[in-house]
Computed example of a mutant assay.
Amino acid sequence: MQSFEELTAPYRRELHLHCYRMLGSFTDADDLLQETLLAAWRGLPAFDERSSLRTWLYKIATNRCLNAIRDSKRRPPAEPLPPFDPPEPTSRGDVTWLQPYPDALLDDQLVKRENIELAFITALQRMPPRQAAALILVDVLDFSTPETAELLDTTPTAVKGALQRARASLHSPPPPRDTETERDVARRFAEAFAADDITTIKTLLTDDAWLAMPPAPHQYYGPPAIAAFLEASAGGRDSATLELEPAGANRLPAYRCYFVTGSDRRDTGHVVLTISDDRISSITRFLNPG
């Protein structure tokens, strides 16, 4: 058993990230990584080394993820009930299983921002799963088309077709970031958010900004709709105050949120920001299901 752990240890973190990209859920990635390692351990005696160990592990992980997506039919998690009466949402989101990925687990040398940003992960969830798998394997992990065909048990021609369709569905990559401006905007947002200063938050938003709250499907588009929701949310906390701690996620500015009442400090999830130039274009408020 020790030798198997030594063999697979160099690949576990990248396999976990691969499962996260495929599934959009940190929790599901944990489960699928364990399934992958168990399947690899059981299959190790039959591993014939026609491919590298890394390639073999990726084949197992990819197919386990595809099976999980197919078997679950992407059942959405239970919709949480807010402790206040929220305004009517602009729309209802379809990727309610999305979860953040902590920056602390990302390798700065290996993970590009555009390959882990929430917009990219969300786009992958909306693709047919085999298209998403082909895109990740070729464009993110740099497997060749023939290698990807082998991993997916298909033909290079089929992989090329899947890639073409997947790439066509993606939006433009994020613009170059100004980290100093980004930090300043995020700091100003955090201070205003904790103080329920909705007026200041509105000044920090782009005209087409949106707010989403996985696993709740509610989405609010535009500063007036976002402000209306934040005002209702602030009014539903009663005497609790809101505290934020920096906790980067998906290579984006992010904060861990706590409700504090006296000596009680309750973790309520994350808020993750996407910042364009000097304004916030999206707020994703990941609610703690606990």
Rank of each mutant, 00 (worst) to 15 (best):
M1C: 07
A9T: 09
P10K: 04
Y11N: 00
R13T: 11
E14S: 09
H18C: 02
R21C: 07
M22A: 12
L23F: 06
S25V: 09
S25C: 09
D28V: 15
A29S: 14
L37Y: 10
R42T: 11
P45H: 09
E49N: 10
E49T: 06
L53K: 06
T55W: 11
K59N: 06
K59T: 14
A61I: 12
T62K: 07
N63Y: 10
R64D: 09
A68P: 04
I69G: 04
R70T: 10
S72E: 11
S72W: 12
R74S: 13
R74G: 04
R74H: 12
P77Q: 00
P80T: 03
P80N: 04
L81T: 14
P86Q: 04
R92P: 03
T96G: 02
Q99A: 03
Y101I: 00
L106S: 07
V111T: 10
K112Q: 11
E114S: 12
N115Q: 10
I116M: 12
E117M: 05
A119F: 08
A123L: 00
L124P: 14
L124S: 09
R126F: 10
R126I: 01
P128E: 11
P128R: 08
A132P: 11
A133R: 08
D139G: 04
L141W: 13
D142W: 13
T148R: 10
E150N: 07
L151E: 03
T154A: 06
A158Y: 05
A158L: 10
K160F: 07
R165H: 10
R165M: 06
L170G: 02
H171W: 02
P174T: 02
P176Y: 01
R177W: 00
D178R: 01
D197E: 05
K202Q: 15
T203R: 12
T203E: 11
L204G: 03
L204A: 02
D207H: 13
P214E: 00
A216T: 06
P217E: 04
Q219E: 14
A227M: 11
F229E: 00
E231Q: 15
S233I: 00
G236F: 10
A240I: 00
E243Q: 14
E245F: 15
E245I: 14
A249V: 03
R251N: 08
Y255W: 15
C257E: 06
F259W: 13
R266K: 14
L273D: 02
L273F: 01
I275W: 05
D278I: 02
F286N: 01
N288F: 12
